[in-house]
Amino acid sequence: MKIDGYTRLAAVVANPIKHSISPFIHNSAFQATETNGVYLAWEVKATDLSETVANIRRYRMFGINLSMPYKEQVIPYLDQLSEEARLIGAVNTVVNQEGTLIGYNTDGKGFFKSLPSFEISGKRMTLLGAGGAAKSILTQAILDGADQISVFVRSSSMEKTRIYLEKLRVETDFKVDLYDLENVQILQEIIHQSDLLVNATSLGMDGKSSPVPTNLNLPPQVLVADIIYQPFETVFLQWAKSQGNVAVNGLGMLLYQAAEAFKLWTGKDMPTDEIWQSLTEKYH
């Protein structure tokens, strides 16, 4: 990689972030597309966030990615928001368009790009969880023309989720159905009417837990996805595969949300097949 006076910077900003694989993905893409850029991971204190955003302009950077806890906190420092970022209320990519800073959220697009031979338009989705990743998947599904969406959350999150879904309904005219995750009978009924089942909770990161009881039955048409990629195959995905269903983990979402950001910054397509190969070797 040649670094010279024309090299432009991009970075991921979060706390903590040193473990991030985004530098590996983006630097591989810069190299493969012969783009004169370097991508770093910046562990930034909350008090330094506004200055960090100001540096995007100051240093003529491509832009930044954001992870926890700054996806919402960054919004006041930006000039514009894309439609999906506004609806989600969170930004994971800032683009420097000749000094104008525009916030995007590429998580939902990245998620749907990662699904094998699947279009959400006209389909029914069951979504487990209502955190940041769930909101981006949910919002993108609405924007992409999903027919019907059911969200299941723990009873402690019901009220907060209801408020968000009501705001979405006002903005998009789309009514999302909300249920208690503990209500296994309804969960089973709804899954049987679905085309896509997504775990967007953190349940399964420990390699032992699952967001659903493993005695539930899956109809053969349901595609099952988990946003977790470490472990590579969660208990939830093992359960889906044991019933013969196609099941995908969250590594593709990570790659394709990065590809969307890369395209916004450079105008170039990220060579995802090539990078996917390296990622699976690294994490499998």
Results as ranks from 00 to 15, higher is better:
L178G: 01
S114T: 01
Y59V: 09
L127V: 06
A133R: 09
E119Q: 08
A225T: 14
Q230R: 15
T100R: 04
Q277R: 09
S67G: 10
K263Q: 14
V44E: 14
N105W: 01
F262L: 08
G103H: 01
K268W: 00
R86F: 03
M158H: 08
L264E: 10
D195I: 04
A54C: 13
V153T: 09
R169V: 07
D269P: 03
E281A: 10
M205Y: 13
Y104I: 00
V151G: 04
E119I: 06
Q97S: 09
I25M: 10
E34F: 14
L128C: 02
F112I: 02
E182Q: 14
D226E: 15
N245R: 14
S150Y: 01
Q185R: 12
R58M: 14
Q31H: 14
L127Q: 07
S82C: 03
L223M: 13
D269W: 01
G244C: 07
L66V: 09
E159I: 01
V74P: 03
E182L: 12
I137E: 02
N105T: 02
P231H: 15
G267W: 08
Y104L: 00
S209G: 13
S67W: 10
L181F: 09
D177E: 01
V38A: 12
D144S: 03
L87P: 00
E233C: 15
A247K: 08
N96C: 05
I275N: 08
N217C: 09
Y164P: 04
G63I: 11
A261L: 06
V74N: 06
I75H: 01
R154D: 10
D180Q: 12
G250V: 03
N217A: 13
Q80N: 09
P23N: 03
F118K: 02
F174M: 12
T214Q: 15
P69T: 10
L49D: 14
D79A: 02
L143Y: 04
P219G: 12
V246L: 09
G63F: 13
G63D: 11
P23W: 03
F232S: 10
M253K: 05
T100W: 00
T139G: 04
G145C: 05
D173K: 11
E182N: 15
R60I: 08
L196M: 12
V151I: 08
N249M: 11
Y283D: 08
N199I: 12
I149G: 06
L255P: 04
M68Q: 08
G122T: 02
E159T: 12
R60E: 15
P219Q: 15
D206V: 13
L237C: 08
T266P: 06
P219I: 15
N92T: 00
V13I: 12
M205G: 10
S202E: 11
S20W: 04
A133E: 06
Q277Y: 07
N36Y: 11
S67T: 15
K167R: 13
T201K: 13
K241Q: 15
S209V: 11
R57D: 13
L254P: 02
R8S: 05
R154M: 14
I17A: 06
Q140N: 11
S20K: 05
V13N: 05
V12Y: 07
K45D: 15
K18D: 09
K263F: 12
I228S: 14
D79I: 09
D273A: 14
T234W: 12
L138D: 01
E159L: 07
L101V: 02
D147W: 06
S20C: 06
